[in-house]
Design a protein around this nucleic acid. Sequence first.
RNA 1: GCCACUAUAGUUAAGUGAUAUAACAGUUGAUUCGUAAUCAUCAGUCACAAGUUUGAUUCUUGUUAGUGGCACCA
Length: 653
Amino acid sequence: MIKITLPDGSIREYEKGTTSLQVALSISEGLARNVLAAKINGEVWDATRPLNEDCNLTLLTWNDTDGKQTMWHSSAHLLAEALEALYPGVKLGIGPAIESGFYYDVDFGDKPITPEELPKIEAKMQELANKKSEYVRKEVSKADAIKYFTEKGDQYKLELIDGLPDGEITFYTQGNFTDLCRGPHMPNTGFVKAIKLMNIAGAYWRGNEKNKMLTRIYGITFPKDKELKEYLVLLEEAKKRDHRKLGKELELFHFSEKVGMGLPLWLPKGAALRERLIQFMQRAQIKSGYLPVATPHIALKDLYVCSGHYEKYGADSFQPIKTPRENEEFFLKPMNCPHHCEIYKASPKSYKDLPVRYAEFGTVYRYEQAGELHGLTRVRGFTQDDAHLFVRPDQVKEEFCKVIDLVLHVLNALDFKDYTAQISLRDKEDRSKYIGTEANWTLAEQAIIESAAEKGLRTVTEYGEAAFYGPKLDFMVKDAIGRKWQLGTIQVDYNLPERFELEYTGSDNQKHRPVMIHRAPFGSLERFIAVLIEHCGGNFPLWLTPDQIAILPISERFNDYAHEVLQLLNNYDIRGYVDDRDEKIGRKIRDNEMKKIPYMLIVGEKEVADRKVAVRKHGQGDVGIFSMEEFSDIIKNEIENDFKKGTVKEEVK
RNA sequence: GCCACUAUAGUUAAGUGAUAUAACAGUUGAUUCGUAAUCAUCAGUCACAAGUUUGAUUCUUGUUAGUGGCACCA
């Protein structure tokens, strides 16, 4: 007999070799019907796998993330089975579950499939699912595994087997399909009741661009048809928040083929938004002891040779601009840091001067490959809210923590709650791509890890994601359709001070090397605004929105009063416009609702007589009649509330 | 850059081997209006280039740009 501990703490005894599914059955038949997999001592197992020792057991259903993942992974196998049935001779790559659904990478040989064929594949999958074929796990020797796939002629699987140790290889079979797979899988294919193959894309085998490109088919499955429908509706809703769509509708920015791809043009309303964000950051930075600096858009090649950027990115940058006579080479600036190093060097520094914090809204240009451009999130010309802190080694952690505060101030002020801080460290094995000494890297990595822990950030650690010159802490936020983007970034750099031979005089009267911290709480303004648009669905916080109010005269007769109201409210720092088009009030309301204007002030006979305004709030409707002073208080309070959430400590120096 | 798909007016779309349709936006005029679309009027386009064809917006090829991925991201 073995003892099985259930999540509620109760312990039950079963015969050795009992499966999780049988355990479920002993609890309730309904539960057993819904069990997709089981978590055994924290590890996800097939529900049909025999249990031979005492263990903790959690049954997993569709309501558990791991349950969903199991079903989606099994669905990938179902897709593969359907593909083998419909397209004999296809070669299979890998087919994992992903955050929403699954994919399978397939080599169709010389006859690629088209999106029109997807419904046919879906139908086949459903047909196979309805057979309720069991997923059967089998441990195989490496030799047998190689034999099987050699006979099948699937070189991709053979390549995968090649990298696996003998004795740890398992096959899973359902129906007529057998795949190399670690598992786990759901008990049988019958759980799949709704299937949607989303799209087809190319993907390099094993993610290496030197390898062949396989066809990747993305799909998702559900245990109920209703859930699929809901999911598709959700996707539609998300598309409505796409910043590219809203940017057009709200007249924020524009791309022109004539100007060039990836080069955003900011329209007046978008520019107004940008300006507000810049002001917001400038205020916070002044409080935190930053010194504004400004640098040109081009610099001599030598600057980037010195910084190391030329060696690393020279070939993948916009190519140099040459002077006609001297033939000097200038590069468009891809970073602000080398310039700031030169500013640091412009005067001798004492240990008493540090930390020095140079801040610049610097516009930089990077040659991004055509295929990677995406709305405002990935562009070729963008503005960073960049700053470089030159600090003594003993100040690194304190300064790092202060920068985290600043980033949190930004995220709080804009109501971002769902973010993760990603700690990017060196690749564990390959260290050839990094420059700088082992000791400095270790110091920097430690500083980041400790600061993040001290600030209580929710972190994920990624090895191999560090910049070539140092580790970093990135704040990752999701867009409307779940794609993750890096916003704020903080990076420790021991390399540039070395390369630029930066120094300060210590209390010992000796020369010392400062440490540099790169930081950009927004990251790039372009990307930040893109994510912000999607985050708030175009309904910006009142302090930020380009137009806070629209004044709507009932008819032409009240236009003069409307303009007078605007003038008065301008004096209270409230901005907006008068909608004095020759339209009926219903029309004006509709149009301004669509433009997501936070407050509409309607003025007619009564309002003129009382010198008041009828206030209508976006998305809520009529909220009553107020005097200008009362209305200004409403606005002021709302803005204050937005800001109460974030705080920046005053810098005392 | 790679794989696949797309390109019709400012926007969103319909359609065709004989130069094309609608809605909204825009113009002009009427209307002077009380909380999500007043009526009428006018105007404007088949991304670009080459080819096939009596004839191409439609078919083919190329270019450019966009979309979904992959790879890349100082």
